[in-house]
Nucleic acid binder design. Sequence first.
DNA 1: ACAAAAGTGTTTCGGCTACACCCATGC
DNA 2: GCATGGGTGTAGCCGAAACACTTTTGT
Lengths: 229, 229
Amino acid sequence: MNQSGLYNHVKQLVAVDCIIFGYEASELKLLLFKRELEPAIGQWSLVGGWVNDDESVETAARRVLKYITGLHDIFLEQVQVFSKPDRDPGGRVLSIAFFAFIRLDCFDKDLITSHGAKWVPLYQRPSLIFDHDQMVEKALERLRLKASYELIGKELLPEKFTLLQLRNLYNAIYQTQFDPGNFRKKILVINTLKRLNDKNTTASKKGAYYYQFKENSEKTANQIIKIPN
Amino acid sequence: MNQSGLYNHVKQLVAVDCIIFGYEASELKLLLFKRELEPAIGQWSLVGGWVNDDESVETAARRVLKYITGLHDIFLEQVQVFSKPDRDPGGRVLSIAFFAFIRLDCFDKDLITSHGAKWVPLYQRPSLIFDHDQMVEKALERLRLKASYELIGKELLPEKFTLLQLRNLYNAIYQTQFDPGNFRKKILVINTLKRLNDKNTTASKKGAYYYQFKENSEKTANQIIKIPN
DNA sequence: ACAAAAGTGTTTCGGCTACACCCATGC
DNA sequence: GCATGGGTGTAGCCGAAACACTTTTGT
């Protein structure tokens, strides 16, 4: 019998690790830490932290993200638990992996650098400590699955964006080139975007309409985008 | 600094809870426990257990399933962590939900009843303690998603089965009626089943070929079955 | 005029649906 | 013969892919 309740069993250290995706210059980015202390000094790792006993793991992940980036209301989704007994050489730690989306254009770069975090290109990322590479792999899998079922980008793109920007995001996610005309039609028919009245003329002379996500877009149970090979 | 390693932070009780699916008589079943002690005596709950510090959460789930059913090599998949601080009135417990498949035709019913477990029809299940109803909902969601991406049934149906049995399983999963001819063609074209030379004549006068799953069936990244509304 | 992206239209193709229709057999 | 599920075939529809073509405007 222990203080915290009716149960008596061995307890565990529980951590969260965040796979933080960003998007900039038609490229997916990952927010990583370069460890500045032993063990594994100088090596790259995900952003993580401990779970307290008065918070859910989601709350813990949010707290960690808030600490690193200064942002609250970040999009978060559980990936899975990593729990091999020897996964962390520093001791027995369960870790719950989360993936998060962050808008790269609108927050304080100095804050994250002051915490030792850095953005790296997802597809040229260094290898990471412990099982963090597996975590990134799993998160990327989940990102691709999610993007095939619903239109993502609300938390990665600016408030208003052109279809070119959205298509480039999808190109970056699946490492492919979607056909401009077909992508446009496929996206518009699902009716989750609202066309605005102003245009962006930086990328084209003609100017492309800005779009933004509608408030209440009901999601489909089936694929909207086929996953390329 | 504590005995188990370099880290020093508050630890948590960690449990696993298993959503155990079975299939019998064209119906999905769920293996539940009727609690025989306070608190919540007489109420239904999922099968669960504690996580030890020398095992992964998967190993813990397997251990629990082995204890209840006597079976090892059970199919298991993580659903997600449930971790609201007040989710268990008995104290702060993190729980990792798993879903599992069990063949109802080939194991010892007495063993599970001796442990107080009972099979109930999934769609007429009683309400469960704590957040276990949410766990079942999430697991069912994941089951449906999984069944839409790959042919399931290997761990739910007998070793050899007819396409009627497989179709009835899918009917039960999605609570719908798939067209016999179209279902057959859709399933056979993905080339994961092997037709045997003997037939089953219990359901039809003509007799239906038995099938079984091939050893090494590569899975597709895209949907094989559209999720009905 | 030309380039470059926006936006629309068109043709073709393949897959899926909704059936119809024969098969085999026990009653 | 008839009912029942097994198994195959097919017409039609719908959506996706591939790609042509027109629009707009800065240079």
